[in-house]
Computed example of a mutant assay.
Amino acid sequence: MSSTSITTIDDTTALIATQAAAEKARSLGLAMSIAVTDTAGHLKSFLRMDGASLISLQIAQDKAYTSSATGLPTHMWHEYIKEDAPLLHGIVHTPRFIVFGGGFPIKENGNVIGAIGLSGGHYSQDMECARAALAAISAEE
């Protein structure tokens, strides 16, 4: 019997991503919640910046969870479902499933090793900060 090992994001990389996202958020004058998860969608790193809204805590985690679970950025989901009525009205009732921007899978050599999710700005700002985190850890987008 062969065993398969799954590579997942390590704690040091998760912290670097979190810090880079926070630095970008600060430069934009935003207070955000930042979640980095492993391949299973479990938290590896989390930061609620001073002043970040309470609702942003769960949304950031859910964005990371969605990207971990699906291997896709959260903003791509709206495009997939907007013209498909059964999917549009059904999948959005899936717990923790987010269909707007701010969540990205973290990939290494084409494989998902974790994800990042941000909440606290407009979703386009959340995406901008997430992309800064991905660049800081040299992750594929």
Score class of each variant (00 low, 15 high):
2 S>M: 09
3 S>P: 04
3 S>G: 08
3 S>I: 10
4 T>F: 09
5 S>F: 09
8 T>Q: 14
10 D>R: 08
12 T>L: 14
16 I>G: 10
17 A>N: 09
17 A>E: 05
20 A>F: 09
20 A>P: 07
24 K>F: 04
27 S>E: 15
30 L>S: 00
30 L>H: 00
34 I>G: 02
34 I>C: 00
36 V>H: 06
38 D>V: 05
40 A>D: 11
41 G>T: 03
42 H>N: 15
46 F>Q: 03
46 F>T: 05
48 R>N: 01
51 G>N: 01
52 A>P: 01
55 I>N: 00
55 I>Q: 03
55 I>P: 00
60 A>V: 00
61 Q>S: 06
62 D>A: 09
62 D>R: 02
68 S>T: 06
68 S>L: 10
69 A>H: 07
69 A>Y: 07
69 A>N: 07
73 P>H: 08
74 T>Y: 06
74 T>D: 11
75 H>D: 12
77 W>V: 09
78 H>T: 11
82 K>I: 15
84 D>M: 10
89 H>W: 13
94 T>G: 08
100 F>W: 14
104 F>S: 06
105 P>Y: 08
106 I>W: 13
107 K>V: 13
118 L>G: 04
120 G>F: 00
121 G>H: 03
121 G>R: 01
123 Y>F: 13
124 S>Y: 06
126 D>E: 02
127 M>I: 11
131 R>S: 08
136 A>W: 11
137 I>R: 14
